[in-house]
Write a protein that binds this DNA or RNA. Structure first.
Lengths: 217, 217
DNA sequence: TTCAATATGTAATCGTTGATTACATTCCCG
DNA sequence: CGGGAATGTAATCAACGATTACATATTGAA
């Protein structure tokens, strides 16, 4: 047998009992651990993420200059998932007409925020945009803005809107949707007499009210 | 002179150089220090509040069982100021008609949130409601809800509204206003092409759009 | 008035966290 | 090969929330 057998990338020499000195892809694992921590409602600490990755407390700082950089990467990943689900939802149930699409967008937005509250919080806060603000995060977000912009432009082109001030409508619509999602996240609804089970239906009603308000006749 | 002169409450015996062992009203001072810390954008720590009150790091825990209790008291105070300013504003510029009052409410709401971002954040988050949730905090908030409820009920009674689903309108309106305030707080507007100076005008436009949407004819 | 119970402050200490530094191990490319 | 570059560990630091034992002031009842 020639000596040149496959380099065998140190194939997890777990011979005695030791893990390999180098972790496979620590960066990714840390981000996943942080996402999971957030999803569990725990507060995300660098050390706990390191602990879950079975790595020393200092190791994460080889991949992120500080905690905020880790959180920025977490926000990036969460934003990516958020955008992906919104777009998938819109692609699946392809609603007829721009306003129906706008409605579907708003509902999908609120639903994701309800089902992933901690991740939505991380995305929303903007605390992790300022720092690294990795182009990707900004881009994923801008894509969603463009998405709704197009819906409204199309609606205007079809003469469905009472007003042509699209920017105003766009921001009002986003404020409504974002505000609704955050009211839920921030625990306002119990104080408003909206029970846990009614929230999704209320979201639909509220969005419908808005659309009825901007639609012609 | 009779021996019965006024008890003179130990009148700050700063005779040599020492402050009195007991602080005057440490609880109040700690809350104020925490409010100031928040307003400065620093993160609020019990120790720093103690430092500003010139008191040992353990002293605050005589008045608050833990940090969250301090933050709850801070939220309570901020909420009190918030409500006071809203009501004062509405009382001063008494707008004609329920919808004009609703408009003024929304604008005052957003303005306070813009000028007191850190305090608004503390109020909004609801993280400090859950714990002590002092009745006062809840009450101040409920008062503001009732305020807007009455406006809409009055508008409905005067036949100004297209729909009579007041709860839906109420929540939609609140979501819009809260969402707008939080979009600003969370730093979304730069990404939406809304400059710092335009935000207040945009708030008015957005509220007007909403009112036009719910108003009859 | 006195004095003892209570309220309120200090000092010392603990465990956790973010962060840095010096050192160890592995990877990879010339 | 062999020597940097990448990536991990170990040790350490300061700041923070929290607790405990102790010190001092306030207050109300005998």
């Amino acid at each position: 047998m020639p000596a040149r057998q496959i380099p065998k990338p140190r194939a997890r020499r777990q011979a005695p009992e030791a893990r390999p000195y180098h972790h496979g892809d620590l960066r990714r694992v840390l981000i996943d651990a942080a996402l999971q921590l957030a999803a569990e409602g725990a507060d995300v600490s660098v050390r706990e993420a390191a602990r879950r990755a079975a790595v020393s407390p200092g190791a994460p700082f080889r991949h992120f200059p500080n905690r905020d950089a880790l959180m920025a990467a977490v926000a990036e990943e969460a934003q990516r998932r958020f955008r992906a689900e919104i777009e998938t939802t819109l692609a699946d149930a392809r609603p007829a007409g721009p306003l129906a699409r706008f409605r579907a967008f708003g509902i999908a937005y609120v639903r994701w925020a309800m089902r992933n509250p901690a991740h939505f919080e991380i995305i929303s806060t903007g605390r992790y945009f300022a720092h690294g603000s990795s182009a990707e995060l900004t881009r994923d977000n801008a894509e969603l803005v463009v998405l709704t912009e197009r819906m409204l432009a199309e609606a205007a082109a079809q003469g469905l809107l009472r007003s042509t001030d699209l920017k105003r409508i766009l921001i009002a619509g986003r404020a409504l949707i974002y505000g609704f999602a955050r009211m839920n996240l921030d625990g306002h609804f119990p104080r408003w007499g909206v029970g846990e089970g009614e929230i999704e239906r209320m979201a639909e009603e509220v969005i419908d009210l808005f659309i009825a308000g901007i639609a012609k006749s």
